[in-house]
Simulated scan of single mutants.
Amino acid sequence: MIKTGQATNRQLRAHLPAALPSRLRSLWHSARGAHLGSGSVIFPRAQLLRYPGNIRIGAEAIIKSDAHLCPCRPTAIVSVGMRTTIGFHTFVYASERIDIGDDCMIAPFVYIVDSDHGIAAGTNMNRQPNVTRPISIGDDVWIGAKAVILSGSTIGSGAIIAAGSVVRGTVPSGAIYGGIPAREIGRRS
């Protein structure tokens, strides 16, 4: 008998890019310093930007086309867990640290950023330093399309973020959050 998670994983993996080009892309990203777990897949046009040596992608993780993983500073870290899928056109920009757990599903067009611009009056905002606070996303999290995860957010394991939501703060494990700003709209049963 196939468990639900196994069936879903098989469906997803049935539509992966061809093995040889995928392996060559992985070797190229590894040569640039990225840490790629066994069986991880980087789709064509996915980009590991600026400091690829600060990117860690777990075994069997999938990074789809036009996704950006970007440590924006030499000390910034982007970490993606095992069997996690990062959707098409999703942007993950870390000025400090973004940790995404195992078995997460991150839909297309999600934006995850751990920094904000300074906004003090009297100085142009583009001349003020960024204010950073790390982001932590637990295991088995589902983030819907076009959601925005802002600096300092912590999303507990098993949580769901509804499509189009804006998250800042803490989302408890197992909670379903939605809206702008996101608030609890349910619990997984």
Rank of each mutant, 00 (worst) to 15 (best):
N54H: 11
E96V: 05
S79R: 07
G81R: 15
F88R: 12
D66K: 10
S40M: 13
A7E: 12
C104Q: 04
T170A: 11
G122R: 05
V78G: 00
G39S: 14
M125I: 12
S65N: 07
A145T: 06
I77F: 05
M82Y: 09
I160V: 15
S136H: 15
Y51N: 03
Y93N: 10
A46L: 12
A175M: 08
R83K: 15
G122C: 05
I57E: 00
S22M: 14
S189G: 08
Y177T: 03
D139T: 10
G33K: 11
R73L: 13
R73G: 00
M82N: 12
A67D: 00
A120N: 10
W142T: 13
I160M: 14
N126F: 14
L36Y: 01
M105R: 08
I2N: 06
G33D: 06
T8V: 15
L49Q: 11
S189Q: 07
V131M: 09
I161W: 01
A121C: 09
H35F: 04
I161H: 01
Y177E: 01
R188Q: 08
R23L: 13
V80D: 00
K3M: 15
V148L: 09
S38Q: 15
I98T: 01
H68G: 01
I2Y: 06
A162S: 08
M82P: 02
I77H: 12
Y177I: 09
D116G: 05
R183S: 13
T90P: 01
I2D: 04
Q6M: 14
G53A: 11
S115M: 10
D114V: 00
G158E: 04
L69F: 00
L24T: 00
E96R: 09
G164H: 14
R188K: 09
I55C: 02
S22P: 00
H68L: 14
K146E: 10
G5D: 14
